[in-house]
Design a protein around this nucleic acid. Structure first.
Lengths: 152, 152
DNA sequence: ATTGAAAGCAACTCGGA
DNA sequence: TCCGAGTTGCTTTCAAT
């Protein structure tokens, strides 16, 4: 990860569909050089993929919430099982496995409040390993789409 | 958002760099048709952009945490100010503005535990509007990269 | 590791259905 | 709205450095 790699990563985070030529032009190197750098970054696993950013409203997901969940007993089998269960639900965008007061945080996005309630009652409340959960509605969200590499 | 649009969105979520021709082939339409659909989705704001997915470790961000924050007084000026402040910090990946017990949730990613501690002490503790915060370490994260459109 | 040249493809436009 | 042909431009390879 030298200076060139960092800049490639930064530019592809902000716009993954710009052409390799444009990337090369911004970096001041030949397109073939740029292409090889991108391939190397991908081989190494630094670049994991390219994803379109879709407006949740366009996916009928106007209501978003964060649900913190506690499970017991807190062992590997229970954690892995619940993680797999949660990740497989269509309402769930992200599952975080945590330490601290909460064991999991679920980022969910659904059509409306009724569906959120149904998710909590029909999906979560039925699981025996869940000993408690707490829901916070998301009103706004700001994302840093181009996190930079931090210095060591 | 008909069936074709939904499928385009789904495919671009899973791989934003596949060629328009490949997209068209998978959908069984002409490339020119597919291109026009993608442009219309972008014009309407359904497609908001395309971003490379980068391994946090490659950006020197091996340590990730979720920090829930309470601020007072809870009015628009304080909320907007804190939101802007938090979103501008290089350690912060996402800012969620919430209802419920917490007012904000910050998703932060830093080099190591020392830097996390420094972030909490030097950045957050200095803010007068913050009346409390709580940090949970992130051990694992599963993301649904291709959320589907939900039925109405 | 980087480059330039050349071949192969894809993006994009536009006229027609 | 969709399609297909044609032009323009990009991606990709490869031999040389």
């Amino acid at each position: 990860m030298d200076e060139l790699d960092s800049e490639i990563v930064r530019l592809l985070q902000s716009d993954a569909r710009q052409s390799n030529r444009e990337l090369a032009r911004k970096l001041g190197v030949a397109p073939s050089t740029c292409l090889e750098r991108v391939r190397a970054l991908t081989r190494r696993g630094a670049i994991r993929g390219y994803h379109a950013d879709i407006d949740p409203a366009a996916l009928n997901r106007a209501v978003q919430a964060l649900v913190s969940v506690q499970v017991r007993p807190l062992n590997r089998a229970v954690i892995d099982t619940f993680k797999g269960f949660a990740a497989g639900l269509p309402e769930v965008l992200h599952v975080f496995v945590l330490s601290g007061g909460d064991d999991f945080l679920l980022h969910v996005a659904v059509q409306d409040l009724d569906r959120l309630h149904a998710f909590l009652v029909d999906r979560l409340s039925k699981r025996a390993e869940i000993t408690g959960f707490r829901t916070s509605m998301i009103f706004q969200q700001v994302s840093n789409t181009t996190p930079v590499a931090l210095p060591s």
